[in-house]
Nucleic acid binder design. Structure first.
Length: 293
DNA sequence: ATCCAGGATGTAT
DNA sequence: ATACATCATGGA
């Protein structure tokens, strides 16, 4: 086992591990004690979390200004990538317009960062998110990993990686329904098949201008405007993407009624401008977490 | 019991 | 392009 620590206290804008991985933007991380979403700020906020990706387990906790980690291999660059520790949060705040709701949310969860999740797990988690509570989305992803993913041994325990597109494409609908995916089961299977066959790839989307990328994402099944925005924001690094979910819709009604333009596309453009454009997704994620907590 | 949860799809207009 | 019913599941 390799270990290390990353000084995060002096990163521009700081860092907050708990809000980053427990704000409903990523379904990659689990708390080591299995109490995700049951209690808040356990151990003074220094609980261990783990993620499994590329057959590697990485475990991390934040304590005394450090992000301490344990892994099968050197995990520092992986953590910088997954948790976007290279984002200049101060610059992002500076680029965000004066706005009492956004500022309140930024103050409440200072240091929370957008994640950079692996594409396929992110895609599936947000396909599953349709009409579903955050806690149950977690449970579905956990069930998929246990049932279809590779087992990885680490530190005397068995962890389960999220399945590959090929692994999920090989499942049939009844297997997925047995895991309580409900009507999302065929969406997940068909989208896995599109990736497994190479008919659609993440590279077909990555690099496109934002609105083109949002359209391209809808080649997947079970992906409309909102889920497309989530994957663009939380996996592909389109920080301007603002997923218009029910929470943000009600925030628009309440705080930004002039941004409601009827259609998703036009409302999206308006709220994106309201939130400062380039980093509008950051403001969205803070507001989402603030309103939902 | 009825309503709702990080919506998308198929169909009719 | 927009309006509508329909789609599982569990918790309040």
């Amino acid at each position: 086992m390799e270990t290390g620590s990353i000084p995060v206290e002096d990163l521009p804008g700081g860092f907050d591990l708990q809000s980053t991985v427990e704000s409903g933007q990523s379904y990659l991380w689990r708390r080591e004690d299995g109490r995700m979403y049951e209690t808040t700020h356990a151990y003074g906020g220094s609980a261990w979390y783990y993620a499994v990706t590329d057959c590697e387990v990485v475990r991390a906790r934040q304590r005394d200004g450090l992000l301490e980690w344990e892994s099968t291999t050197d995990a520092e660059s992986l953590l910088v990538s997954l948790l976007r520790l290279d984002d200049d949060l101060d610059a992002i705040l500076d680029a965000t317009p004066e706005d009492s709701l956004v500022e309140t949310a930024y103050d409440e969860y200072r240091g929370m960062r957008i994640v950079r999740d692996p594409f396929f797990p992110c895609l599936v988690s947000f396909i599953c998110s349709a009409q579903m509570r955050v806690r149950r989305i977690y449970d579905m992803q956990t069930a998929l990993a246990r049932r279809f993913g590779e087992s990885v041994e680490f530190d005397g325990k068995t962890y389960h990686e999220f399945p590959t597109p090929t692994q999920l494409a090989a499942a049939d609908e009844s297997d997925l329904r047995a895991l309580k995916l409900g009507y999302r089961a065929p969406y997940v299977r068909k989208s896995a098949e599109l990736l497994a066959s190479g008919e659609v790839t993440a590279e077909d989307v990555r690099g496109l201008p934002y609105e083109d990328a949002r359209d391209a994402m809808q080649a997947f099944v079970g992906v409309g405007d909102k889920v497309a925005d989530c994957v663009l924001l939380f996996a592909l690094g389109y920080l301007e993407a603002v997923p218009l979910d029910t929470w943000i819709q009600s925030a628009i009604e309440e705080h930004y009624p002039h941004c409601d333009r009827g259609s998703y596309r036009d409302t999206s453009r308006a709220i994106r401008e309201q939130f400062g454009g380039e980093y509008a997704g950051y403001a969205q994620t803070y507001v989402f977490h603030y309103l939902r907590s």
